[in-house]
Design a protein around this nucleic acid. Structure first.
Lengths: 201, 201, 201, 201
DNA sequence: GATGAATGAGACTTCATTCAT
DNA sequence: TATGAATGAAGTCTCATTCAT
């Protein structure tokens, strides 16, 4: 069983790497096998078909990125720092192509219910995570009672996904940089207001 | 020449429809031809290749949706109304699949520089449009001098794109509905604050 | 009728030019039409099909080249001069691509009886012409009675065709140059021997 | 590995046969597969593309024919016998279509640099072989010092290629027969002269 | 006569998937 | 389990040819 798991993982990792390096369209059974250094046929011992493998790859990617996000954001207290770290994470996402993979899979999921279900499952923990972070910050504001956390978290995720989408279109990262610069300024303002007398006892 | 244009349009429309209905992966020369009821070969009489056609489809979609957005939002003054109309437009986008097409093409553009350039060109007018709307609303707030319009506009587009992406994953539209409900409440708050004495002379 | 002939000629010339410039494989109805600046459909008013047109092109080419050969070789008397002029003609053949066209058509004729017949017809006058030249030179030698003119002429044509074939493979013309240099030396020897006392009264 | 080679060979042989039987234009992936009794797709498992396969076919043909030529001509001493054997080999070439294949590929190579390079490589050993034979015969003549072996060898190859080209145009072989008959007479003359006192000590 | 849009067959090629080894 | 050769369907694209205008 350990062997089975190990082999499976090897295939999944090769898939993620191929997805990130060569893009969704070029992620074929053969190219994955070439990346991983195994025979194409072995894929079908561990996965029903390519769709199945892609779902696994999406989960693997999502989980490892989520772990990275948790690690980086767990102890953040100021909005300024939150934005700084998010910018760093966003840069990583774009650089390593992992999120590009997820985005491609999301688009592809419109023609594959199995893939769509897989991605849906995989987004849920992100929603929870985003809610945690959102709650932590909203709690410190006078609007705490008014802001619906789930919707805010969802909006944050949507914003992030959309930003990655737009980032991929730009040849340089200038616009994303500009966005984060502005967002950090807003965050600074938020921090000032949140720490003003009367807001936090 | 009129015939040429008409025929070209017919192909483009069939492409958009196929993209919306069957997804990017299933949008092949054959499937487009099947949708439009013409021979696959005719595509290559009017377009260099499939990439070329997809770029045209992206432009067509973008332009017609932008026209619709302009029409609907040109005379909006209150944030509440803005959100109401945006919700309606978003519903249309999801229903007719036009934006789905754009989203799929955006994702696919990571493996096609030609497509990426086409989409980039096509996004520019949306950025300008979003800036217009954003400027109009920000002007009425005390933060007018602080808010960078281009970045705000870009964030709005990213948010919208991301929302559509997430909407496609959901089998029902409950979450999008919830989001707009909350957003409208926030908008109402904004309208109250914006019209408070001291903000507008 | 004059119009018909003129139009036909225009098409044939466009075909020859396309054949020379873009090669046999790229000589399609459309590319010929593009070269000549007319609509593809017009070809079918003057020719049954593309094969028919290619036969006409082969004849046209052959005839114009033969005229050029006659012009250049009609008054040649010494073997040295013959070789010099042949070298010049060979250079022309390779440069303008006309003979390349004939060679390609010859190869293609193996899958087209109609084309084969056309080429065959077109080679006959070359055989006659070569026989004339050969006879003129052999007459001055003591072997006159022994040498079979038709076979010699055929060998000369074969040699020439073969040389063109090999020329096309070389990226530079060094080898053809070397061949002609040697051949000219042999010709000089021939001229000396042919003019020696006892050979010509 | 043996299987790989065996399968590759099967494809190459089918290609040569198709080339010989149906001509270059009709040698498509499908027709080769039909000839060999395998699926078209398997070609692309063993070769990058059709060009690659055609290069391989040219090499295979060239090598096997060259081996046959060596075998037949290695111990020939008299010109008469040389011509007799060349005639036999020529007949074989025309009959089995092997040289037809080479000729078609040579013509086609004008539109394919890769093919041209392949053919060029493949012609080199023939040049060497022809030089060996030529040297052997020239050595016995008083012109030994005057005759440039490489050019003579090249001319011989050109003549042979040209003869095959012309042979393919003729529906019967009468003209080639006539050529060889005459050539053999000339060879007899050569043999007499070469063995005359004073030429060989 | 001429045009050029349209057709349909067929070419090359790729790919997921299977299966004998 | 793993391999890698083989299959067959499907994809993109080109082309000769036709035909309404």
């Amino acid at each position: 069983m350990a062997a089975r798991t190990e082999s499976r993982d090897r295939i999944v990792r090769a898939t993620v790497q191929t997805l990130a390096t060569e893009g969704y369209a070029a992620t074929t059974a053969r190219s994955v096998a070439r990346t991983g250094g195994f025979a194409p046929g072995v894929i079908y011992y561990h996965f029903d078909d390519l769709e199945d493998l892609l779902v696994a790859a999406a989960q693997y990617t999502g989980e490892s990125r989520l772990a990275r996000y948790r690690e980086e954001l767990s102890d953040v207290t100021s909005a300024t720092e939150l934005l700084e770290r998010l910018e760093r994470l966003h840069t990583e996402d774009v650089a390593d192509g992992y999120m590009a993979a997820v985005q491609e899979l999301t688009a592809a999921s419109s023609s594959s219910p199995k893939l769509a279900a897989g991605i849906r499952t995989q987004i849920e923990p992100w929603q929870n995570f985003a809610e945690q972070i959102a709650a932590r910050f909203v709690a410190r504001t006078p609007f705490a009672a008014l802001v619906p956390i789930p919707e805010l978290a969802r909006a944050a995720i949507a914003l992030f996904l959309g930003m990655e989408m737009l980032s991929h279109l730009d040849t340089d990262g200038a616009r994303s940089d500009a966005f984060f610069t502005s967002a950090k300024q807003a965050a600074a303002l938020f921090d000032v207001m949140a720490s003003a007398p009367g807001n936090l006892p």
